[in-house]
Amino acid sequence: MMYELVIIGAGISGLTAALSAWERGVSSVLMIDYQKRRGGFTLPYWSSDEFAPERELLEKAASLPYEIHEQSTVVGFFPGANGQLHQLYVQSPMGTYSIEAKKVLIASGSLEKPREAHKIPGTRPAGVMTPMMAMQLIERGYQPGRKIVLIENGRISRSTAVLLEKETSNLVKYAESDWELTSIKGLSRVEGVQLRNRMTDEINEVACDTLIFAKGRVPCTFFLKGAPIERDQHDAIIVDATGKTNLPDIYAAGSCTCLGDDDHTNSMELAKETAKQLF
């Protein structure tokens, strides 16, 4: 299988770029995505008001005639030297296959950085989760917990709070700008958290069975381990303002790049800019 363009990731950036490619008349495009549905990791939040532009994007992208391989993950990436085709190995429900591409756009997004990356002291009980995990549990008919503390620090956590408030009345929000999470308590399940007021140093012990917290992002560039595509110290792909990587005909956009942001707010913009360069 050979394509003019392979887009890795059918989230905000991937869909934006795909729409641009279609508008420019490119017909041979393949999209590959880890999830079962297009929309990317932030999809669960798209019903909140702050994700109105993304919702619009999804509606437009619904009519895209491009092939999309869902539940498919790139596990090997071999850039072609001297204008040769790039080779990608993809793991799917049907097994592993390889595809070739003249150009590749990496729009693989990012995951949330959990509590563990921030050295927050205390115990490690069940019930400590990121917004993405909370939303995925709700999708499956579970409640994340009975008394939830949510640390608000951006568009994702705000949207999660809005959506959770529809499900439960037992949600308490703390703005990260005011409160620092200093400890987690509980043996098997969360029993409480300790927060410190950044201004007054006041310590607040809050009883709860669930903590929703994430800060920062983990770029989904795991499949690039060993590949010669340059990344920064956080494993984000190094790109210029037009989405060019260090290798010809390999582009990257969105939160998997060094220009992306934790809340995916500039992903559309970056993807549009990158798409201009592609054809």
Partner: peptide, 16 residues
Amino acid sequence: PLKGVRNSYLAVAQGE
């Protein structure tokens, strides 16, 4: 579903 040790339930089942 449990995370690890006893009573380390990951979520509250619906209807509970």
